[in-house]
C-alpha cells in the first residue's frame, strides 16, 4: 500500500534527514515536509510547506493531503537553542495542534510517530543503571525541557487512548552525536573543551545520527507502535567522551556549577544546558532491547557515535565546513511540478 507521510520540522536536521530517507522508499507515495524555515538538506521529491511554530494550519493540511503517517520530529530536546517559553510553544502547543489535526473526525491518519528524548528519565543518584521504557524517573522534574517533554508524552498517551485506530509510536533518543548534527556536546567538543563537574565521571550513552534516522524510518515503514528507547550499546565515562572527541575536560565547581562557572562558559563559548548538568553528574543508561526485538539493528555503539563525530570533526578541522545547501524555491517547484521535467513512470 502506498504511504503518504507528513514530516514535521523538515527545516531541522532531524526532519530533513528523515524526509531524505523516506524519499528513497518506493513504498512511500508522498513525503510532505512542514517547517518554519527552509529545508537545510537537498530533497528530491518532498513537498515543502512552510508553517508557523505551533502548526496551527496543520489540520487543513492533513485534511487536504490525506496523509496516513505523521512523523513528528519538530520537538526541541536541547534547551540552549531557545527560551523556556518558546520551548513550551514548540513542544507542547505544537504537539497539541498536531495531535488535534491527526485525531480530527474523518481523519486519514493511521500512524503517529513522536520523537522524544531520554531526558524524560532525568538523572539522579538513585537511578537504575538501565532504564526500561516502563521505568519511572526517580527524581522530581527540575528542568524546563524535561517538563515540556513529559507534558508532550502525556499528550501523546492521551491521544493514543482516545484514538485506538491510530498506531502511536514514541521514540526516546539518547544524546545524539554524529558527523553533522549540532548539539551542546558536539559544540563543546568542537571547541576542544568539554565541561565536566569536578569529582564526577558519570557513564553516558550516545546514539549516532544515522541510527536515529534509521530507527524513525524503521518504525514508520513497518508501522511499529509503542514506546521505545533508542541508544547505542554500552556506556562510556564522560571523560572518555572528551578523550575520544579530541577535547579536554573543563572541570567546573561541584557546587552550583552553572551558576558559579557561567562567565567561564560564556567566555569559552561552551554550552552546558540545565538538562546536561545532572547528566554530567550522574549519567544515564537506557535499555534498548525492546527496539532491537522489533528487528532494528544498530550500526553504532555509544563509543562508535563519539568516534563518528570525531572523524567528521577531524576532516572539518582540515578542510573546513564545505558549501552549505540553500533551498531555492523556484528551482524546487520547477523540478517537482513543471511539465518540462520528464518523470519516471509517466
Amino acid at each position: 500500500m502506498a504511504r503518504r507521510v507528513l514530516v514535521t520540522g523538515v527545516d531541522t536536521f532531524w526532519g530533513g534527514r528523515v524526509a531524505q530517507a523516506l524519499e528513497r522508499e518506493p513504498s512511500v507515495d508522498l513525503v510532505l515536509g512542514m517547517g518554519t524555515g527552509e529545508p537545510k538538506v537537498p530533497l528530491e521529491r518532498t513537498e515543502f510547506v512552510r508553517a508557523d511554530q505551533t502548526y496551527s494550519i496543520l489540520s487543513r493540511i492533513v485534511r487536504a493531503t490525506r496523509v496516513d503517517t505523521v512523523v513528528h520530529t519538530f520537538l526541541v530536546t536541547n534547551s540552549s537553542v531557545m527560551t523556556g517559553r518558546a520551548l513550551h510553544e514548540v513542544n507542547v502547543i505544537g504537539t497539541l495542534n498536531l495531535l488535534a489535526a491527526a485525531g480530527a473526525s474523518g481523519t486519514t491518519v493511521r500512524h503517529v510517530i513522536v520523537k522524544s528524548s531520554t531526558h524524560v528519565y532525568g538523572s539522579s543518584p538513585g537511578d537504575p543503571a538501565w532504564f526500561r521504557e516502563d521505568a519511572r524517573r526517580s527524581a522530581p522534574v527540575t528542568t524546563q525541557l524535561e517538563r515540556s517533554l513529559l507534558e508532550v508524552e502525556a499528550l501523546v498517551r492521551d491521544f493514543a487512548e482516545d484514538n485506538p485506530q491510530v498506531a502511536v509510536t514514541v521514540l526516546r533518543f539518547a544524546n545524539v552525536l554524529g558527523s553533522d548534527i549540532v548539539t551542546p556536546v558536539s559544540t563543546d567538543l568542537r571547541r576542544r573543551l568539554l565541561p565536566a563537574i569536578a569529582g564526577y565521571d558519570p557513564l553516558v550513552q550516545f546514539v549516532e545520527e544515522d541510527d536515529v534516522v534509521r530507527s524513525l524510518e524503521h518504525v514508520a515503514l513497518r508501522r511499529i507502535d509503542g514506546l521505545y528507547n533508542v541508544a547505542g550499546a554500552g556506556k562510556l565515562p564522560w571523560s572518555e567522551v572528551a578523550h575520544l572527541g579530541g577535547a579536554r575536560l573543563l572541570p567546573l565547581s561541584p557546587v552550583a556549577p552553572r551558576l558559579v562557572c557561567a562567565p567561564l562558559l560564556r567566555l569559552a563559548r561552551l554550552e552546558l544546558p540545565p538538562e546536561l548538568e545532572a547528566l554530567a553528574r550522574y549519567g544515564r543508561g537506557v535499555d534498548t532491547s525492546r527496539l532491537v526485538e522489533t528487528g532494528f539493528s544498530y550500526r553504532f555503539t555509544s563509543a562508535g557515535a563519539v568516534g563518528s563525530f570525531a572523524r567528521a570533526n577531524n576532516l572539518r578541522r582540515s578542510v573546513g565546513q564545505g558549501p552549505v545547501y540553500r533551498y531555492e524555491r523556484d528551482l524546487e517547484q520547477f523540478f517537482r511540478h513543471s511539465r518540462a521535467v520528464v518523470r519516471e513512470g509517466e
Partner: peptide
Amino acid sequence: TAGGRPQSDRDADVSTSLPVA
C-alpha cells in the same frame, strides 16, 4: 574497522554537506 563504515563516503558527504546515509 571502525564503527562508521565506509569513512571516505561519509566524510565526502560532510564536505559537500550532503548527509545522505
